[in-house]
Nucleic acid binder design. Structure first.
Lengths: 189, 189
DNA sequence: CTTTAGAAAGTGAACGTTCATTCACTAATG
DNA sequence: CATTAGTGAATGAACGTTCACTTTCTAAAG
């Protein structure tokens, strides 16, 4: 039996890049096929449709990221360490794979994230949970945990956005200490 | 001569709403015409193309917002007051017209904002300028003004995003004090 | 070791649909 | 009556998807 693993990987990486560069709707199957060096029909051996391709790329990776965040958070004893671990995870993901980060956290938010069923792990909910726990334990200023989590997430995501636009030169990991410190100033006791 | 002002306003509001609800690419001229109660050809009496419609809605309103932010900022003596005035402006815009806010600040970022020429007023640059000035005057902790501005902008925009998703009940104006306080904790001296 | 059958992957022209745009025509207004 | 707004069927291009066909690979049979 013929092995299509390499082809599928090529489809995944190429379409991820084009989806981020031009947007999902603006990327045609012909664009993907041409950039990946395959025929137009080949994608359909691996995905039922363009929609399924876009959704698979999002849901698989977003679920993995959310699980990883939850795993890292559980490893840490205190709330500050939990939040620091999560922020460093975002920074590392950005530096390692800015295209994937952009697709998951900056682009796909509208259109894909609305399809996430409530049962699946969700990065934002992990952060809310951590902050809620931190408030219970008195490690975080009492208040609305969703509001606090939104602010922390906002700092991280807008930093990534500015990095994408080339507004600063440091890597996200270089700035991780700064981001953690700022986030803690926002939510910390 | 016939007056098309009302029709144009109807096109503007209807397409703005649909662009935010479904995305620009996913909104067809038929969608707009049908929802606005006009014929398909009518839009072309007011805009040369769908692209021009999307761009006009963005650039006109984004420039107006950026100018307003700059005007408000100039009215204030201190850096804290400047930032507070700008954040309150974002909150008011959101509460008054969440659809316009979403189009300008949450959706159109990718696709439209890249077309902004550097000479035009740009909300982010106004904020960077204010923070840069605040650092010079010793009212803001010394550092990279772009990084500080990104964090403040991130707090505001992610709060708006969470509000769009219905993650909390308060209006943005209700939370303005909280947002200003958090932002100042991030950048303030 | 060689042959061969079957299964899955790869191909790309063709298909049907959808879409943005056009245009000849009509309606309104000054 | 001239000018601009409004109309909606028609147009052609672009797109996602299909499918009959080819290629490649595995493994069982000889």
């Amino acid at each position: 039996m013929r092995d299509g693993t390499k082809t599928k990987e090529s489809i995944d990486r190429t379409s991820l890049r084009l989806f981020v560069e031009k947007g999902v709707a603006e990327t045609t199957i012909r664009d993907i096929a041409s950039a990946a060096g395959i025929a137009e029909g080949t994608m359909y051996r691996h995905y039922a449709s363009k929609d399924e391709l876009a959704w698979s790329l999002f849901s698989k990776n977003f679920t993995a990221l959310s699980r990883e965040l939850d795993r890292l958070q559980k490893e840490q004893p205190g709330t500050r360490e939990k939040i620091e671990a999560m922020i460093r995870c975002f920074c590392t993901l950005f530096d390692d794979d800015p295209i994937l980060f952009s697709y998951l956290c900056l682009h796909a938010l509208h259109g894909q994230i609305g399809k996430m069923t409530p049962d699946r792990p969700h990065a934002m909910e992990v952060l809310i949970k951590v902050i809620d726990g931190g408030m219970d334990r008195g490690e975080i200023t009492k208040g609305n945990p969703t509001v606090a989590a939104s602010m922390v997430m906002g700092i991280v995501l807008q930093m990534a956005t500015s990095k994408v636009y080339g507004r600063f030169d440091e890597s996200m990991t270089d700035l991780a200490d700064t981001i953690v410190a700022a986030s803690w100033r926002v939510v910390g006791e």
